[in-house]
């Protein structure tokens, strides 16, 4: 909008998850969103078959963060040929946990009156960043020191917004909170925290180079295997 006002967590555009060729005429596109403290799978179903579709249901395989449908799939049936419908499926994180490769992989099964269809999607980790992820300053400093240097991972983010305020506002809308901000030798340093739905805290330092669109993200976490995916979430939210 250009107004600098940021509303809500970043939502990626929908992409096709199940092609009609593989779904016997059922095409599903979707994305993930976090709204009002809850996670959703936003889906678009299209019937590209010559027959009516009905009796839809959805199931997830076990996954790294216990994501599971929080309600049955509500599709107004029957779905006539060439008809489309939008559905927002609320999710919770109390399902069975199994570490996936990659960590953010989700295996989905959708059934209708024709067959059962399987597909895999990867979700951006920021849909799991909770609203109370701002760490107290004293706790931040203690935790930062407590996490060993070997657990720190560094990444370059290109195409950052030009001002620290814009960066901070954009990230906060996706539940990445600025705990402190310092300027040293012209470089803006943002100290940030976030918390995942499973209680894992991530501490971050975002260093912005004056006059450069690139910034350096340093992440400290007791579960360093998540760092790569946190970086991807930062990139997605900032771009």
């Amino acid at each position: 909008s250009g107004t600098g006002i940021v509303t809500g967590s970043y939502v990626a555009p929908k992409t096709v998850w199940l092609h009609a060729m593989k779904g016997k005429g059922l095409e599903i596109s979707g994305t993930f969103a976090r709204r009002s403290g809850a996670t959703f799978m936003d889906l678009h179903f299209t019937n590209r078959a010559l027959q009516v579709m009905s009796d839809f249901a959805i199931q997830f395989n076990r996954n790294s963060f216990g994501l599971a449908p929080a309600a049955p799939l509500q599709i107004p049936t029957p779905l006539a040929p060439n008809q489309s419908t939008e559905v927002s499926l609320p999710l919770n994180t109390i399902g069975s946990v199994m570490k996936m490769e990659p960590l953010n992989n989700l295996q989905v099964a959708v059934k209708n009156n024709i067959d059962v269809f399987y597909f895999s999607v990867v979700y951006p980790l920021h849909i799991l960043f909770v609203e109370d992820g701002k760490m107290e300053r004293q706790m931040f400093l203690a935790t930062w020191k407590d996490i060993p240097n070997e657990n720190e991972a560094q990444f370059q983010i290109r195409d950052c917004p030009p001002s620290a305020d814009a960066v901070s506002n954009k990230l906060q809308a996706s539940n990445i909170f600025t705990v402190a901000r310092r300027t040293v030798e012209g470089q803006d340093m943002l100290y940030q925290s976030l918390k995942l739905t499973n209680g894992i805290w991530v501490l971050a330092e975002l260093r912005m180079q004056p006059g450069s669109p690139s910034c350096t993200l340093s992440l400290r976490c007791r579960a360093p295997e998540v760092s790569q995916f946190i970086f991807q979430a930062y990139e997605m939210v900032l771009k």
């Binding site: 300053r137 400093l141 930062w144 402190a180 040293v184 470089q187 340093m189 330092e205």
Partner: peptide, 20 residues
């Protein structure tokens, strides 16, 4: 304003990271 020493601690952290 209550000086809890945390402002200074963050400044030291930022400086140590810039000039290790």
């Amino acid at each position: 304003e209550l000086d809890d020493g945390l402002d200074e601690a963050f400044s030291r952290l930022a400086e140590s990271r810039t000039n290790p």
